[in-house]
């Protein structure tokens, strides 16, 4: 039985690699791109900046060693979703290459870095928080309309351009739902940002992304998600038992912002607002221009350099 199971998994790995060969571009990317600097290290791979030799355009390349990937099907899913879901608030997928066991995914590069640096190193005002929430909600409305759940919304996966543009990235854990199977149960995401229905292993749908957006809004207020000082297991327990997290000095926030947070961080999924509904929330009328994020991006970069 063990051998059969092992054989079944083995076959599916080969099937996945075969499928990947049908998707990727044939050719050696080392001859098309000059790798520059390592800018990120995640569980699934390493991210570099690179210059496309032909055009001189700066791109980001995510490099993954397939043999080290426990769930290869997620990689195929990531490429297909990014390739078929182009949107101004989604990092643009450009190309992909298979070099032996190494998969290269070439994407648009945003030099402003991730939102995490901005939330941990600077203070954002409500107008700026509203603007970022609006941009992410636009991406989520588009994805949810196309039956895609991101499942890992957090500041680390929001990239910024120097002009203040805001884009969602890392579709390595997203789920494509269908009318027959519009719910999922596998626990996927980052513990501190997980919705209660995910933590308690109930069936969940697109609104898990809305909860995570609410937690990300707390990041933009406090610099980190609730319970980050706890270990992940205890954080899951606290999410399951406390439901909506406490926000320190919540009374200092405007009533509109407090209501926006309440609509995102609603434990009853049916009562929790959708992306489309939230895009009409009056809090988003407080949006300041995205260009105001430029100063925060520069300040965050100087601060992280200083570390």
């Amino acid at each position: 039985a063990q051998q059969m199971k092992q054989k079944k998994k083995k076959m599916s790995d080969e099937e996945i690699i075969e499928k990947l060969r049908g998707i990727v571009t044939i050719g050696d990317p080392n001859r098309k791109f000059t790798k520059m600097e390592k800018i990120g290290q995640g569980a699934s791979g390493t991210v570099f900046t690179a210059i496309e030799i032909l055009t001189g355009m700066e791109v980001a390349i995510k490099q993954m060693n397939l043999s080290q990937q426990p769930k290869k099907e997620l990689i195929v899913n990531e490429i297909l979703v990014m390739r078929e879901n182009k949107h101004p608030n989604v990092v643009n997928y450009l190309d992909s290459y298979l070099v032996g066991e190494e998969l290269w995914v070439v994407m648009e590069y945003l030099p402003g870095g991730s939102l995490t640096d901005v939330v941990t190193e600077t203070c954002m005002d409500e107008g700026q928080i509203a603007a970022v929430c609006r941009e992410v909600l636009q991406a989520l409305e588009f994805l949810h309309y196309n039956h895609v759940i991101h499942r890992d919304i957090k500041s680390d996966n929001i990239l910024l351009g120097m002009d203040g543009s805001v884009k969602l990235t890392d579709f390595g854990f997203c789920a494509q739902i269908s009318p027959e199977q519009n719910k999922r149960t596998t626990m996927v995401g980052t513990p501190y940002w997980m919705a209660p229905e995910v933590v308690t292993r109930k069936q969940y749908g697109p609104k898990v992304d809305i909860w995570s957006l609410g937690i990300m809004a707390i990041e933009m207020i406090e610099g980190e998600p609730p319970y980050l000082n706890e270990n992940p297991l205890r954080a899951l327990y606290l999410i399951a038992t406390n439901g909506k997290p406490e926000i320190k000095e919540k009374e200092k926030l405007s009533p509109l912002f407090q209501d926006f947070l309440d609509k995102c961080l609603e434990c009853d999924v049916d009562k929790r607002w959708s992306a489309s509904e939230l895009l009409k929330h009056p809090f988003l009328k407080l949006c300041r221009p995205l260009t105001t994020l430029h100063a925060l991006i520069v300040a965050a970069r100087d601060a992280t350099k200083g570390h």
Binding site: T116, T120, E121, D156, F173, V188, T190, Y192, P232
Partner: peptide, 19 residues
């Protein structure tokens, strides 16, 4: 500056080792 613990920010799929 606010503290960031990289390990805690990793994404989990299914049952992580610590569960």
């Amino acid at each position: 500056g606010k503290r960031r613990d990289r390990r805690k920010r990793y994404t989990v799929v299914g049952n992580p080792y610590w569960m």
